[in-house]
Design a protein around this nucleic acid. Structure first.
Lengths: 194, 194
DNA sequence: CATAAATGTTCAACTGGTTGAACATGATTT
DNA sequence: AAATCATGTTCAACCAGTTGAACATTTATG
C-alpha cells in the first residue's frame, strides 16, 4: 500500500490489516504521460484516481469554447470527474495530466465491492466527501465575495506548491479571470511590495 | 418517523426497523419562527436540521457588510452550516428562517452515536454528501461559465418552487448579482416574450 | 384606513474585468 | 541556429454588471 494513501486513510479511520488488503486488491496502478486524459468531457468517468506523483487539472469547456479549470490535483489528492464517476453519467469536465503522473485507481464496480467487503471505507469516503463539499462551498463564497486580486492572494497562500508547478494562465482560469488580468494584478503587487 | 425523511432515507439505503428507531431516537423536533436563526455566523453550528415544513436561507456576510446567499432550503432538504457542523468550528455562514419552519434535528454527538449504532447511515450520509458536493461543483462551473441572465434562467428552471417563495432580491443575492440587475434582466425577458 | 416597513423598478454614472491584437521571452524540436 | 510552440506582458477599446439615489408598489400592523 502506498504510504501517501495509507496515511490519508489513517487520518480518518483505523483500518484492520484486512481492510487494507481489501482496498489494495481493488486498486490498479497506472502511469499517464503529460498531456494524457484521465477522463474526457462527455464520457463516463471510468476511475477514481489517487495521485502518487504528478499533477492534473480538471476543466470544463463551455459552449463558446472557453476552458474553465475547476481543480488542480497533485500527489496525495484524488482526481476524477466525481459527479460522473459517482453517478456513472456523462462527465461535464475533462481531467488532463500536466506532468507524467502515477496513480492508484479504482472503478465504480470496485468501489461498490469495497464498501461491501470493507465497510470501514464507507466512513473514510464519507469523510472525504464531507471535506470536498466544505471546500467547494467555501469556493462558492470566495467567488462571490472576493475581488480578483483577493482571490489570487488567497490562492497563493493556500496552494503555494501549485502556483510553482502550473503555468500562470491556468491559475488565472482556476481563479475565474483572464490571464491578462492576472498579469496586471501581479504587476500591481510587484509595485506595491517595492 | 416523518414520511419525507423516511422516503429520503429509502432512496439510498434499505433500513431495518431498528435503524429507523435508532435514527428516530437521535432526532429532536423544533419549530422556528420566521426570522429566527438556526446558526449565526461565528458560532459553532449546533445541529443538522431536516426541514419538514418552511424555508431557510444560508448566507455569508462579507467584511464590507454585504450579504451573499449560498443556499435556500425547503421541506425535504437538510439545512445547516455544514462545514461548521461537521468540523465543530466557527460558522462562516448564518442560517435564518424565511418562514415559520419545522425541523427534525440531530447534534454532532448524536451523529457520531448514530453512525456507531446504525452503521447503515454511514452510507446514507455518504450518498448525501456526494450529491451535495456534485451540486456545489456544478455551481462553481455555472458561476464561471454563465452570464447573469443564463444563471437566472437556470435557477428558474431548476427551482421554480423557490422562486415563488422567496423575495426577488434574495434570488439575486443567491445568483451573485444585484437586485437592480436582476430586475433589469426580468424586464428584458418580459419584452422578449411578448 | 393610515402609516410604516419591506420589496421592486428605473436611471445615469461608473468600474472591475474582458477582448483582441501585438510584442517579448524562453523552451523544444529539427 | 533556425523555427516553432508555449508562455507571459502591455495596451486601448469595450462591456457586463455595480452603485446609489429616487420613486412605485405591495404587505403588515396599530
Amino acid at each position: 500500500m502506498h504510504p501517501l494513501l495509507l496515511s490519508q486513510v489513517e487520518q480518518y479511520i483505523v483500518p484492520s490489516q484486512e481492510d487494507i488488503d481489501t482496498l489494495h486488491s481493488k486498486l490498479g496502478t497506472r502511469r499517464y504521460l503529460k498531456g494524457q486524459y484521465l477522463v474526457q468531457q462527455g464520457d463516463i468517468c471510468p476511475h477514481l484516481s489517487f495521485i502518487t506523483s504528478g499533477c492534473s487539472k480538471t476543466f470544463h469547456i463551455d459552449p463558446q469554447g472557453n476552458e474553465h479549470i475547476t481543480r488542480f490535483a497533485i500527489e496525495g489528492w484524488w482526481s476524477a470527474d466525481l459527479g460522473s464517476f459517482l453517478t456513472q453519467t456523462a462527465a461535464d469536465c475533462s481531467v488532463k495530466c500536466l506532468e507524467d503522473t502515477h496513480v492508484l485507481q479504482i472503478t465504480h464496480q470496485g468501489m461498490q465491492e469495497l464498501y461491501k467487503e470493507a465497510p470501514a471505507f464507507e466512513r473514510f469516503f464519507r469523510n472525504l466527501f464531507e471535506n470536498s463539499f466544505i471546500h467547494s462551498e467555501k469556493r462558492v463564497i470566495a467567488n462571490f465575495s472576493l475581488t480578483a486580486k483577493e482571490r489570487y492572494l488567497a490562492f497563493q497562500k493556500r496552494y503555494p506548491q501549485i502556483e510553482q508547478r502550473v503555468p500562470q494562465y491556468m491559475v488565472a482560469s482556476y481563479l475565474g479571470m483572464t490571464k491578462q488580468f492576472l498579469s496586471k494584478i501581479r504587476n500591481q503587487l510587484m509595485v506595491e511590495n517595492s
